[in-house]
């Protein structure tokens, strides 16, 4: 009879040891134990939010630069009534909605071609082009746009050959939106691609065999069936845009702040951590409400992950 292989014996020893450390009868709690690190992380975040909430109820005393001992709603009153914060909030929300819409419009054809192309080379090129920006940080990319779109940048240089310009292409609201769209596009494509992959090609073929042209097939088959991808990608792009700091700071020329920039100013420029905490809390609340509304209206899309309700 052939001897038991050494590796089997080793595994037996390991299994016996594991049984002593973690008995089999506890197997039921394994999934919960695996969840523990994530729960711990989220717990820490929630704990942080409680601290932020506590700070938001304290006002700054500018004679001592200490936060008040007592609680008040003064910071909330300021945040909701001062024109500065209203302007910044409008810019942020309008910006995030525009960026989301534009990004989804640009991302769908990209994702569609990437998934459906018969050419492996084209798919690779599209994938590389998609992932390349991830290796370049957001700040570097924003500075790259300054070089390209600046008064002495490549675009204005090219325009000067045609005898026009230079034009101020940066340090304005459209430049911020442009930078955000460029930054968000890979995220949206990555979220949309699985949804497009899930659309059976036969469905499109069936539509065409029944007389639909390419545009009709796209509008009546592809778009509705890609809806879960739109929801997932839209939510990710909208929340990331709403809370972005670097691109409004760099491409906005200082006059196109988003809420994150206003929060930074309160924490680091005026030392008013209470007001900064208030703005942060309001941003979290507003963002969460927006996401909840989208969930309620159109579902969770690809973010649902698990088994969909039948």
């Amino acid at each position: 009879m052939r001897a038991y292989p050494l590796t089997w014996r080793l595994l037996d020893v390991l299994e016996t040891g594991l049984e002593k450390v973690f008995p089999r009868r506890l197997a039921g709690i394994t999934p919960y134990l695996m969840l523990a690190p994530a729960v711990l992380l989220v717990g820490l975040l929630v704990l942080g939010l409680f601290q932020v909430a506590d700070g938001s109820l304290r006002t700054l005393d500018t004679t001592t630069f200490l936060m008040s001992e007592s609680y008040s709603l003064d910071n909330f009153r300021r945040a909701l009534s001062e024109p500065l914060f209203r302007n910044v909030a409008v810019k942020s929300f309008a910006g995030s909605l525009i960026v989301t819409a534009m990004t989804l419009v640009l991302a769908l054809p990209y994702a569609y071609v990437m998934v459906r192309t018969k050419s492996a080379a084209l798919r690779k090129i599209l994938l590389i082009a998609l992932f390349l920006p991830f290796f370049i940080g957001q700040v570097v990319r924003a500075y790259g746009w300054l070089i390209i779109l600046g008064n002495q940048g490549l675009v204005n240089e090219a325009l000067s050959f045609l005898g026009i310009g230079p034009f101020r292409l940066i340090y304005n609201y459209p430049a911020v939106l442009f930078g955000l769209i460029q930054y968000m596009l890979p995220f949206a494509v990555l979220m949309l691609a699985p949804a497009v992959t899930a659309i059976p090609e036969e469905t499109e073929a069936a539509a065409e065999s029944l007389g639909a042209n390419w545009i009709q097939t796209f509008i009546h088959v592809v778009l509705p069936m890609a809806r879960p991808g739109f929801v997932g990608a839209g939510l990710v792009v909208m929340t990331l845009s709403l809370t972005d700091f670097a691109i409004p700071a760099i491409l906005g020329g200082g006059s196109q702040d988003f809420i994150a920039n206003a929060i930074y100013d309160q924490f680091f420029r005026t030392s008013d951590q209470g007001l900064g905490a208030t703005l942060a809390l309001l941003l979290v609340a507003a963002g969460s409400t927006l996401v909840a509304i989208v969930f309620a209206l159109v579902g969770t899309g690809t973010l649902q992950m698990g088994r969909a309700k039948q």
């Binding site: 700054l60 500018t62 004679t63 630069f65 001062e82 024109p83 500065l84 302007n87 910044v88 810019k91 200082g254 006059s255 196109q256 702040d257 206003a262 100013d265 420029r269 005026t270 030392s271 008013d272």
Partner: peptide, 18 residues
């Protein structure tokens, strides 16, 4: 300056962000 800086910054920002 210290006592009023926050208000001045806020006012300046409000004008510039409008």
């Amino acid at each position: 300056q210290v006592e009023n800086e926050s208000a001045w910054f806020g006012k300046f920002k409000a004008i510039m962000q409008s």
